[in-house]
Simulated assay, not measured.
Amino acid sequence: MNINILYEDEEVIVCEKPAGVAAQTRRLGQADMESLLKNYRAGKGEQPYIGVVHRLDQPVRGVMVFAKTKEAAADLSRQVQTKMADKFYYAVTDGVPEQKKGTLEDYLLRDGKTNTSKVVSKSTEGAKSARLDYEVTAQNKTNAVLRIRLDTGRHHQIRVQLANAGIPIVGDTKYNFKETMTRSGNGLLLCSYKIGFKHPKTHKKMEFEIRNPFLI
């Protein structure tokens, strides 16, 4: 599998994860970005270390940054955990939000047995706050394209929050109960199109972006 590498130096690799490929997995025989990038580095005669510092759901395509050293991994992980790293998404929703711009704030609880999350009350044990900002960039009578900025990084956050708001993502077979298969046949219509972070060594602000793949 060819990897679309957007940027690389001695500390980081920024690349585009294809839809359907896991960022990291323990399943034997299943290709994931971690193993693909390790093989890529080994093929160049480098030490095949890859630090996974953030996640992207397996059905979701988009930009990811990986560390090439343990020091870079620690710095990037800290940025992700302290919300210093910026992550932006496009999503096609089944339905159109009433407000063209807005913020969704909920509390989510993850169920490890079913690999799903749900919106719960603030007082629920184990609940974690979830916040995102969205803006409608295009729409028709039945769908909208949303540009989303994540403020928190919870399990399946965008998918759960949009479904709870009554505008689930097209092609989401876990949370969109209006349909079991996407009309387009292109899978889950969610893409991480932009990421921003400070370089772990130079501390220079870096941003990487791919074009919006969704037209309605």
Rank of each mutant, 00 (worst) to 15 (best):
M1R: 12
N2H: 13
N4Q: 13
Y7N: 03
I13L: 13
K17V: 09
K17T: 11
A19E: 13
G20M: 08
T25I: 04
R27G: 02
R27I: 06
R27Q: 13
M33K: 00
L36H: 07
Y40L: 05
A42G: 07
G45I: 04
G45T: 09
E46I: 02
P48M: 11
G51T: 06
V52K: 13
V53Q: 07
V53N: 10
V53K: 05
D57M: 01
Q58D: 06
Q58V: 14
P59L: 01
V60D: 05
R61C: 05
V63A: 02
F66S: 01
K70G: 12
E71R: 02
E71A: 07
A72V: 01
A73V: 03
A74W: 09
A74P: 07
A74F: 05
L76W: 08
K83R: 15
M84K: 15
K87W: 10
F88G: 02
Y89Q: 06
D94K: 07
G95P: 06
V96P: 05
E98V: 09
Q99R: 13
G102E: 08
L104N: 10
E105N: 14
D106W: 14
D106L: 09
L109P: 11
R110G: 10
D111E: 14
D111Q: 10
D111T: 08
D111G: 09
K113M: 12
N115F: 14
V119I: 08
V120N: 02
S121C: 02
K122F: 09
T124E: 13
E125W: 02
G126P: 00
K128G: 02
K128L: 01
K128T: 03
S129T: 08
A130S: 07
D133H: 14
E135A: 15
A138P: 12
Q139R: 08
N140Y: 08
K141D: 15
T142Y: 12
N143L: 10
I148G: 08
R149E: 15
D151E: 14
D151P: 02
T152Y: 05
G153K: 03
R154T: 00
H155A: 01
R159T: 00
L162M: 01
L162D: 00
A165Q: 07
G166R: 00
P168N: 06
P168D: 04
I169N: 01
I169W: 10
T173S: 13
Y175M: 04
N176P: 03
K178F: 11
E179Q: 15
T180M: 12
T182N: 15
R183L: 11
G185W: 08
N186M: 04
N186Y: 12
G187R: 03
G187H: 09
Y193S: 05
I195P: 03
T202D: 06
T202I: 04
K204N: 10
K204C: 01
M206A: 02
F208C: 01
E209N: 03
R211C: 06
N212T: 04
P213T: 05
F214A: 10
F214L: 09
L215E: 15
I216K: 14
